[in-house]
């Protein structure tokens, strides 16, 4: 047991350094990917990644944001005016939807849907020796396989976050009309008065950072499969766990920095 614990402790820093190196390698290969794309190769991977990660997740993001936005407005309008703080509903809406839940919930959805998919796909490609085939034909698997997936996740996350805000702020207003009618002018005026550029910048930065983390973790875990097919689900699960953990830590760090 002591042996196992010792091995893990000694291996953890090595894996961390390796993962950081992998992340740097991906960033370093982004220009190479665009050069390759200009030559007509690899564009389909990015497009398909955005389609699967972003477009296909739009329905669940829309439903989630609509429901959360409507609940915040309904609860806020029923409680806050009693305390003489009705105007606070817009600040809460912006803080919850735009700054916090937007980026992190879309990140969780992407981790659950696409993070596992990427890990599984790449893991199976390793098992099937497809990676070796790419290398044998002179294609860098990082440039050709990892970079478009990471970029796809980042772009999808940013776009999904925008849609989450749209459905959360605008769509939820329409839902609220069914329960507690509110004048559109009053709603928009309150929203404009509460939102700041910092809210959008913080949300945007979070989406990019989460996208990079999720993409890198998913591709790393996928490519970390060595030879057996049984390793694939294990790596997929690790991808989800590490993705959620890193996302939550990054969220806390960015929130902290944005309020400094």
């Amino acid at each position: 047991m002591l042996d196992a614990v010792g091995t893990r402790v000694l291996r953890a820093p090595k894996e961390l350094v390796y993962a950081l190196g992998f992340m740097i390698e991906i960033v370093r290969n982004i220009p190479a990917y665009f050069r390759m794309q200009r030559r007509g190769g690899g564009g389909g991977v990015l497009k398909m990644q955005i389609l699967f990660t972003g477009v296909n997740a739009l329905s669940i993001v829309a439903v989630l944001s609509l429901a959360i936005g409507a609940v915040i407005i309904i609860q806020g309008l029923s409680v806050l005016p009693q305390l003489g703080q009705g105007q606070l509903i817009y600040t809460i809406l912006i803080t919850v939807i735009t700054r916090e839940l937007g980026p992190i919930l879309t990140a969780f959805i992407v981790i659950a849907r696409s993070g596992t998919a990427i890990s599984t796909e790449l893991g199976n490609m390793v098992v099937d020796h497809q990676i070796e085939a790419y290398m044998a034909t002179g294609l860098n698997p990082i440039t050709y396989l990892a970079v478009p997936r990471v970029l796809g996740v980042v772009i999808s996350l940013v776009l999904l976050n925008i849609y989450f805000n749209f459905f959360g702020l605008v769509g939820s207003f329409l839902v609220t009309q069914l329960v507690q009618p509110l004048a559109l002018e009053e709603y928009l005026f309150g929203l404009y008065g509460s939102v700041t550029l910092t809210d959008f910048v913080a949300s945007f930065v979070k989406s990019i950072v989460f996208g990079v983390l999720i993409g890198c973790v998913a591709t790393y875990q996928g490519l970390a499969v060595e030879r057996a097919g049984t390793e694939v689900p294990v790596r997929a699960i690790k991808s989800v766990g590490q993705g959620i953990t890193l996302t939550v830590i990054a969220n806390a760090a960015i929130t902290l920095v944005s309020y400094l």
Partner: peptide
């Protein structure tokens, strides 16, 4: 979706922007 992936992704991006 696969056939019109480019258009769908384009629309998805443009609407968000």
């Amino acid at each position: 979706r696969i056939r019109f992936a480019t258009q769908i992704v384009g629309l998805f991006t443009i609407l968000a922007v």
